[in-house]
Design a protein around this nucleic acid. Structure first.
Lengths: 211, 211
DNA sequence: AAAATAAGTCACCAAATAGTGACTTATTTA
DNA sequence: TAAATAAGTCACTATTTGGTGACTTATTTT
């Protein structure tokens, strides 16, 4: 007897839609779980598709992940044309507002959190490219506004901003899982987060005053 | 025919030594690779032992990992009796030196880096306990020295230190894999790290001056 | 020295993993 | 409308995973 084949039920076929379903499934898994559960079987199951499609469309899981990463854009809201044209005081108020907004944005955006974490966990060209895009975005502000304003101290200013922004990233990632306290500040409460925001504002103010 | 059994070669048996071999294997894997490759098979192979021993001694891989985490102690050098007895200016110089030392310590210590990362990646009681120990350690300095010195601003000071220390953690983790630049600062070079150190010193100085 | 304990070995299992060849059939092209 | 293309299905493989029962034998206890 030959091998039996079940009759397939009618389905509408659409390559683009299917690719999107797989890409979305990756996002969903990353948002909720993490990279540990991110395999072909899982992705296919979440997408409701056969894993064969991953190989058909993306060659491999890595190909799918790379395309997922490339599709990300967390900086559309701060792209060139969305920026103000005037930056009084070397962008003091603008930078302060931006850092505080960033602190909240990371908190509200689990997908961005996971990408930040992924970047710390695994070496991957697509992630480096993403980082490069982010850096290029920041360079617009740095070269256009703060470098001229701080002149000889431009690099010192950049290093300070590096510490501050890195701090906002870490604190948000830390709060996500450990819930508890960091330096005695409870990052899970709005009160604790308010304290951090005041600290960020203080540090930026002092930098613009004293550098 | 009955099942064949090879004759075993003579080995010296020692439970404690074997447990240590397994614990050390966990450390070795974590230092070099990451948590993704951390399974019973891998650990047993690295330890040069049978995985059965993991279950015999620790009940499960989780049991082994928990005991590994519990065995860690990254703060032995800053424990009570090792601290100075005098803290002029609310510990200004001491805190500054401590943060700079910490920045370097994380850089030099891959195991600590991976634990920091692990804490951001997975919820695990043993890791929370480790965090609690670290916090308790810091509380000695905070409650004993800086809280009294900053009085009404004690919590503001803690929040600032949270940002600064979190920044040192993140920058070190970031530099480890992405190599490239953060806010235009190349963290892979000694020059870039020097800039960060100056930024840390600046921020701490301004905090002690202006808070 | 004999008996009891338990350290270590090994073969095996069930489940999950990544990956593929052969098939059906919806859709597009000629 | 007929033929060609390729989207989607499915059964199957090989490998690796976590986990265990049965065994041998070094070491300890009596």
């Amino acid at each position: 007897m030959a091998t039996t084949k079940k009759t397939q039920q009618a389905v509408t076929r659409n390559k683009d839609r299917s690719k999107q379903k797989l890409l979305k499934a990756v996002g969903k898994i990353i948002k909720t779980g993490g990279f540990s559960t991110l395999g072909v079987n899982r992705v296919a199951a979440v997408a409701g598709m056969d894993k064969k499609m991953i190989y058909n469309y993306f060659g491999s899981l890595n190909g799918l992940l790379d395309e997922y990463i490339s599709s990300l854009d967390f900086w559309s809201n701060v792209k060139g044309d969305k920026l103000p044209t005037e930056f009084p005081n070397g962008g003091h108020d603008f930078v302060k507002q931006m850092v505080l907004a960033q602190f909240d944005y990371v908190h509200q955006n689990p997908e961005f959190q996971k990408i930040l974490l992924w970047r710390l966990s695994e070496e991957r060209d697509a992630l480096k490219t993403l980082t490069a895009r982010q850096e290029a975005n920041g360079e617009v502000l740095l070269q256009g506004i703060t470098d001229p304003h701080f002149a000889d101290n431009a690099e010192a200013y950049r290093a300070i901003m590096a510490v501050i922004i890195a701090g906002t990233y870490y604190l948000n990632l830390f709060a996500e899982l450990n819930g508890s306290t960091f330096c005695g500040i409870d990052l899970a409460t709005t009160g604790g987060r308010k304290k951090i925001e005041e600290a960020l504002a203080f540090l930026i103010d002092k930098t613009y005053e004293g550098l």
